[in-house]
Nucleic acid binder design. Structure first.
Lengths: 153, 153
DNA sequence: CTCTCTATCGCCAGTGAATTGCGTTAGGCT
DNA sequence: AGCCTAACGCAATTCACTGGCGATAGAGAG
């Protein structure tokens, strides 16, 4: 029944990502949480708001409440499956926790979000530590600017 | 009457900071705006929320409405006298617009905010541009980490 | 100094994202 | 199959902030 059912008795890929891992973490795997995860992974490299996720989920199960969307996201974030990103607006955006750490540049004009590889920071963490004593966390960093398209004449 | 009244007929310092400059920009200098400015400059290097500013203002003029605090801050930000900073929480923080551009590191544990000189970014803007085509704006950047005190055993 | 014009204010209702309380439903382990 | 309780759905609530509107008070003109 599950769309992305893995090999019946295969035992290859070590850590299978996805909400199935919730069970081994003592949490229940519900249809609602599956759908939230589905919304987030339906299209790659997207950042969805809770509202957008709710819209997707409602296409498959109209009775799911907004409250459940929020609570499911909280669980997925807490369990490390989903990343909550503050993209400057008044709401949060979510994306599947990716393999490698990355950051975001948000266009002030059109709102477009682009990923930046962590390497780009260079010695920034070291410099920050030298200057302030702070040790940077693993949180993503959000930068703001203007994308190429919006700078056209 | 005004505490920090400048020289009666002096004409030294070129650009006098503070809300008095509002007048030359076609805006009115009201007691409420003075008080908001006072709250922000009462202690150096602080970042106050609208609520904290309201508390200060109310000590001197209890009848000032919260709406006015918000609108005054909007004006001061628009006129470039005050900087609105997004420190990650669900609310904005404000500080007098300083001379030089700077950024912030916020401690995830105690919430302490420390300034970082713009130089610290180094080639980051250039690298971001090379990698994404984006041109970074002049906005402050907020980083998160753990301050020295909170890392003590 | 007074008058007039209108920017600003204070009040209060309204937004919109997100949270909470509570009775009901349904995971999932035995 | 049954039980325990995590998780749900609903409705009401919180919280930071915004908008409408009549009243008030800056500040330039006279």
């Amino acid at each position: 029944m599950t769309p992305q059912a893995p090999h019946p008795h295969g035992h290859h890929h070590p850590p299978p990502p996805g909400p199935a891992s919730l069970r081994s973490r003592g949490r229940r795997l519900t249809r609602q949480r599956e759908l939230v995860w589905e919304a987030l992974t339906a299209t790659p490299d997207t950042h969805l708001s809770a509202e957008q996720i709710a819209a997707y989920v409602h296409q498959h199960a109209p009775s799911v409440s907004a409250t459940t969307i929020y609570r499911s996201l909280d669980v997925l974030v807490t369990e490390g499956l989903v990343l909550r990103t503050e993209l400057g607006a008044d709401r949060s955006f979510y994306e599947p926790a990716h393999e490698h750490r990355h950051h975001h540049v948000v266009c002030r004009d059109c709102g477009k979000v682009t990923h930046l590889h962590d390497d780009l920071l260079g010695e920034l963490p070291a410099r920050v530590n030298a200057a302030s004593g702070y040790v940077l966390g693993t949180e993503e960093i959000t930068l703001f600017g203007h994308c190429p398209a919006c700078r056209e004449p």
